[in-house]
Amino acid sequence: MTSNQEKLCGCPGDVKVDPEITDDERQIFRDVTSTELADWQIEQIVTPGRTFPRQERVLATHWHPEFVPMEHIEKRVNAMFPNKQDEMLIPTQHNQILSWGPYSGVEVDCYASGFNQKVQLLLHFENERVENAHVLKSMLSHTFKYRSSQLFEFMDTITNHHEERIGEAARNSGADDNLVEFVRVYVTKIQQMLDESWSTINRSAIKNKLLKNYFDALRISYGDTLINRAQAYLKAVKKIVKRHFSLKYFYRATEVIEETRALGGCVIIPHPEEFWPILLASYDVDGIEVWNPQSQRYTEFLISVVNQKNANRTPGQKKLLIMMGDDCHMSEKTKPVDTQDKVKAAREIGLQPAWDNLSIRKKLVLAGIDRQTVMNEYRERLAG
């Protein structure tokens, strides 16, 4: 470890980082933006840490393959649920339609004008319904590009001395001037390498997570203490950038729903805990996700909300379905185990323990709902 690096591991003094990009730093950039999988990564993907031989129904309508090929995901799912008798798996990549078996899906960012907030919707289709969905695909392409642009605003905030934002982030995370400068120099390098590789880089790598992954890879050089401080500061900056990110360039939720309905697709509201007003918006949706790993606190209450809405629905109005989502991000499975986010890594496609929770299941039984009834009903709706 160099004397500069020793200073950076929590010791006081000026922090000096060479602004020139080293070969090692370029290799880190290639590694964190690569979508090619090494043999050890493939083995890690297809070999789950746990299996669930007693689960015979696998329902998963909210999960993200990211850059992991479906063939590897299929092997993992089959290994996790060796005795499954029925399955309904629909991928929901962010702002990009992907398919599994007979179904296609996407999780789309959009704007809820009624309460001035970004929300997300899960869209599901039979495959043939989106083969010529040119308008929806154009809407998603625009949304993907705009959503990705948040990374550039994130980096620009750090490198171009947006004093007000930087000051707030430093106060909120306890970052001193040395740490702020350390992060600024490295983010400047990342910007330069991103520009240099623009014509060849996989667009899926252009997301806020790029900075987190790059700084995690610096732990070998600088140690956990410094990088943990840097990550806290980056998280504080990202939170501020998200707060100021303009919503006017997203499509309205009603526009997304209308286009989905025109194609014969279905719509689910995911993790409503993050934006409660959406439950009052009376959107034309097929169901509400009452549980996922990020939204567990109000599951029983949300089931009651759905049941009440169903009891009060008007003649001819569709019954709202109770859904659950695992919100699994498969890229987490490709990282070395010691660098994985343990909470995110624990998420698995089709693993939704709430279905079998005794307290929750009691409410589901009264509503006449289980995995199989939801799968049967949703198949009928998707078939139109």
Rank of each mutant, 00 (worst) to 15 (best):
299 T>C: 08
299 T>P: 01
299 T>I: 00
300 E>F: 00
300 E>A: 15
302 L>V: 01
302 L>A: 04
302 L>R: 13
303 I>W: 01
303 I>C: 10
305 V>P: 01
306 V>P: 01
307 N>R: 06
307 N>Q: 09
308 Q>S: 12
308 Q>H: 07
308 Q>W: 11
308 Q>I: 00
309 K>G: 00
309 K>Y: 03
310 N>Q: 01
311 A>M: 04
311 A>D: 02
311 A>V: 04
312 N>A: 15
312 N>D: 11
313 R>N: 07
313 R>A: 06
314 T>S: 11
314 T>N: 12
314 T>C: 09
315 P>W: 09
315 P>N: 13
315 P>I: 09
316 G>P: 02
317 Q>W: 05
317 Q>D: 02
317 Q>P: 03
318 K>S: 13
318 K>L: 07
318 K>M: 07
318 K>D: 12
319 K>S: 07
319 K>F: 01
319 K>Q: 07
319 K>E: 11
319 K>G: 04
320 L>Y: 13
321 L>D: 08
321 L>V: 09
321 L>F: 08
321 L>H: 02
322 I>M: 12
323 M>W: 09
323 M>L: 09
323 M>V: 15
323 M>F: 15
324 M>H: 11
324 M>A: 11
324 M>S: 07
325 G>F: 05
325 G>Y: 10
326 D>W: 08
327 D>G: 13
328 C>S: 13
329 H>C: 12
329 H>V: 08
330 M>W: 05
331 S>N: 14
331 S>L: 11
332 E>W: 05
332 E>H: 13
332 E>Y: 09
332 E>R: 12
333 K>R: 08
334 T>F: 01
334 T>M: 09
334 T>R: 02
334 T>E: 12
334 T>H: 04
335 K>A: 02
335 K>H: 06
335 K>F: 07
338 D>S: 15
338 D>V: 13
338 D>L: 07
339 T>Y: 13
339 T>R: 13
340 Q>P: 08
340 Q>I: 13
340 Q>A: 11
